[in-house]
Amino acid sequence: MVEVLKTGLYDTIQDLGRLGSQEFGVPISGVMDRYSAALANSILGNPSNAAVIESVVMGPHLKFKSNTVICVSGAEMNLTLNAKRLKTNVMYPVNTGDVLKFNKLSKGCRSYLAVFGGFQTEVQMGSRSMYKDVTRNYILNTGDVISILDSSETKIVSKRRNSKLFSSIKRDESHFEASELEVFRGPEFENLDSRQQNKLFNTAFLISKESNRMAYQFDQNIENSLKGMITSVVLPGTVQLTPSGKLIVLMRDCQITGGYPRILQLTENAVNKMAQKISGSNITFKGVI
Rank of each mutant, 00 (worst) to 15 (best):
H61V: 14
V4Q: 03
K63M: 12
V4P: 08
M274R: 02
V145E: 13
R18C: 05
T238R: 00
M130E: 05
T135D: 03
G143K: 13
S158V: 10
S167L: 14
Y260P: 01
L19H: 10
F166S: 13
R34K: 13
D150P: 08
S55Q: 11
V239E: 04
E3V: 08
E76N: 11
S147K: 15
E3F: 02
G20D: 06
I148D: 08
L264K: 04
N269H: 15
V2F: 02
S151F: 11
S244L: 11
D144N: 11
I289D: 11
T203G: 13
R18A: 00
K65Q: 12
Y92C: 03
G228S: 15
E182L: 15
M130V: 10
T142M: 13
V183R: 06
I156G: 00
S179Q: 13
G8V: 14
V288R: 05
L9H: 07
C71Y: 04
Q255I: 05
G59V: 01
M229D: 04
I13P: 00
S174F: 13
I256Y: 05
V288N: 08
I289M: 13
V26H: 01
V233A: 15
S232A: 14
R195N: 14
I28F: 04
V249T: 02
Q197M: 09
G20F: 08
G237I: 00
S36D: 06
N212W: 13
D15A: 03
I28M: 15
H175G: 00
Y112P: 03
A50L: 08
G245E: 07
G59C: 09
I148S: 05
N282Y: 11
A37R: 02
N95M: 11
M251I: 04
R160H: 09
I13V: 09
F24P: 14
F102I: 04
S66D: 12
P187F: 15
I148T: 14
M214A: 08
G258K: 03
L247G: 05
I222W: 12
K107V: 06
Y112Q: 02
V239I: 14
E177A: 07
K164V: 12
V26W: 02
S29C: 14
D33T: 05
A38W: 11
R110H: 08
Y260E: 01
D253I: 04
P236M: 04
S194P: 10
G237S: 05
Y112L: 10
V26L: 03
G287I: 06
N141G: 01
T154W: 01
K132R: 14
